[in-house]
Design a protein around this nucleic acid. Structure first.
Lengths: 145, 145
DNA sequence: CAACAGTTTAGAATTATTATAATGTATATT
DNA sequence: AATATACATTATAATAATTCTAAACTGTTG
């Protein structure tokens, strides 16, 4: 952590102007040892509280989406109510704790590699994601018809 | 397909009053041969256009969520922008066509069973879902730091 | 340092969903 | 069958997440 990367250079390489807002957001997201999972709301709160900086909500959305488009952030699908992002953009899976709404990374060894046997003509697989939901108690499923 | 199940009885068994709106929604959802994927919006449109019935948006939300809570519908996580439901509540995986936003069921044979080796103490696995995204062209991922 | 294109911003607009409170209706009881 | 009551439906308002807009601002290039 605190690699103090030259975010200005990084941003420039991406073709994004290194504005002070973007650099701050980089510091918030990428100056970390561990993978970071967040919602836009988390991030805005973090920046304003921990970093004592006010960045417009729209700018945070723009920037996060710009980073996502460039492949430096990944969007994670959980239950639709919230939209999570992940600083770990490599192919990896997640545990989702339904009790605490916490998202946990899977290591490579936690899940055997997925073997997709179906092929859709004209399409390439762009990702294979596994979401393992865990909870204290389990519910059973029924069939209607 | 027109199994013409007795939805009134079914609803009653669930402890849900068989109102005409609920029966209509059952007809829209469960009178089908194949699994059906939909958003609330799709469903409302279908009911008003194809079935020529006007059911309040709030009622559709309430009813779909009631069915989900009872385990007769399943919510599927894709990209957060839309919330899909599935009439197939058994454990199964999905393909998601990023070009057309279409959701396709996986058969049992399309993906080998997932072996989850990690164990979270005090938690049970409540589901394991795989989402295979497909698209015409592929993007590569990069690392920021 | 001037000019320009790309950015930020506050606030409005949009979209999805949930809450509210009045009205309606299925069901059990008479 | 009429009635009471609890549960449902509805239109509308409220909330939340996200995107749009248009004006002001700022990196960058020359």
């Amino acid at each position: 952590m605190a690699k103090n990367c030259n975010f200005i250079e990084k941003l420039r390489e991406l073709g994004l102007r290194p504005t002070k807002q973007r650099v701050k957001i980089c510091e918030a997201l990428f100056n970390r040892e561990k993978t970071f999972h967040f919602t836009i709301n988390d991030l805005v709160k973090m920046i304003s509280q921990e970093m004592n900086e006010k960045i417009s909500l729209a700018t945070v959305y723009n920037t996060v989406h710009a980073f996502e488009k460039k492949g430096y952030l990944k969007q994670i699908s959980i239950n639709s109510d919230k939209s999570y992002f992940d600083t770990n953009t490599s192919a990896h899976h997640h545990f989702y704790d339904e009790d605490t709404n916490e998202l946990i990374d899977c290591n490579e060894n936690d899940i055997d590699s997925i073997n997709v046997k179906k092929n859709i003509t004209g399409k390439k697989i762009s990702s294979v994601e596994v979401l393992v939901r865990v909870a204290s108690d389990n519910q059973t499923q029924k069939k209607f018809n």
